Simulated assay, not measured.
Amino acid sequence: MTVPMTAVAPHYLLVGETSDIPLLRTIVERLPLDAYGQIFVEVIGHGQIQDWDVPENMTLTWLRRDLSSRAYGGVALRGEVASRAVMAWVSEWIPERKSARDLPYILWIGCSANDEVDRLYHHLLHRFERLHLHHPDFG
């Protein structure tokens, strides 16, 4: 007996900062209505938070740098909060080995020209071969 293969919907992670908002909004508008995943947008503070319509199964999280202090105090550096959020997401969602949660993952990571985010992108690119990964500076 042959078991029919069913397509598994991808899990999306879209990450950016204020300069990425127009492109992120365009990406979100083009997602399928049943898209599943998370959107993280790093902003300096409350004044940069916007209302967005997102697919029902997507969550939008605003990462405020002013609420995430550095070890020595003050506002977190650009890209720092986004990088921590991505690493936490990877720890939760992407298994180290094949498992029941071995879904297709599609990641778009903005925050271009940020060294910390660029290092994170390269780390993910080399560590997880099954990621469909995009970054504005690297294609």
Rank of each mutant, 00 (worst) to 15 (best):
E42P: 09
E116H: 02
F40E: 07
Q38P: 05
L24N: 06
H132W: 12
D34A: 13
R64F: 02
D20T: 01
L23V: 10
A76S: 15
V75M: 13
G139A: 08
P55T: 06
N114C: 15
P136R: 07
G47L: 12
R97T: 13
S68G: 03
R127W: 04
A71S: 12
Y72I: 11
Y12L: 10
T61G: 02
M87R: 15
V28L: 09
L31K: 07
P136Y: 08
P95G: 13
Y12K: 06
P22G: 10
R64M: 14
A82F: 01
S68I: 05
E17H: 12
A113P: 01
P104Y: 12
A100F: 11
S69G: 04
R127S: 15
L125I: 06
V54Q: 06
I44S: 10
H11L: 12
E29K: 14
A85T: 08
R127G: 06
Q48Y: 10
T2G: 10
W93N: 05
R127H: 11
V15I: 12
V15Y: 01
I39K: 03
I44A: 13
Q38Y: 09
E92R: 09
L67M: 13
L107W: 06
L131T: 06
R130S: 08
D102V: 05
H135M: 05
H123T: 14
P22W: 08
H134W: 06
E56F: 13
S83W: 02
A100S: 13
H123R: 14
P136A: 10
R64Y: 02
P104Q: 08
R64W: 05
H46V: 11
P4S: 11
H11T: 10
A113Y: 10
M5V: 15
L67I: 04
P10M: 07
F138V: 03
D66H: 08
D53G: 05
D66S: 13
G37V: 05
I44H: 12
I109S: 04
P32L: 09
E17F: 03
S99M: 07
L77P: 02
L14V: 11
A9K: 13
L133W: 05
D51R: 13
R65E: 04
S19F: 04
S68A: 12
R101P: 02
G47S: 15
G110E: 03
T2S: 15
E29L: 07
G37Q: 03
D137Y: 02
N114A: 09
E56R: 14
P55K: 06
L133M: 08
V15D: 03
R127L: 10
L31T: 02
Y36F: 09
R30G: 13
W62Y: 10
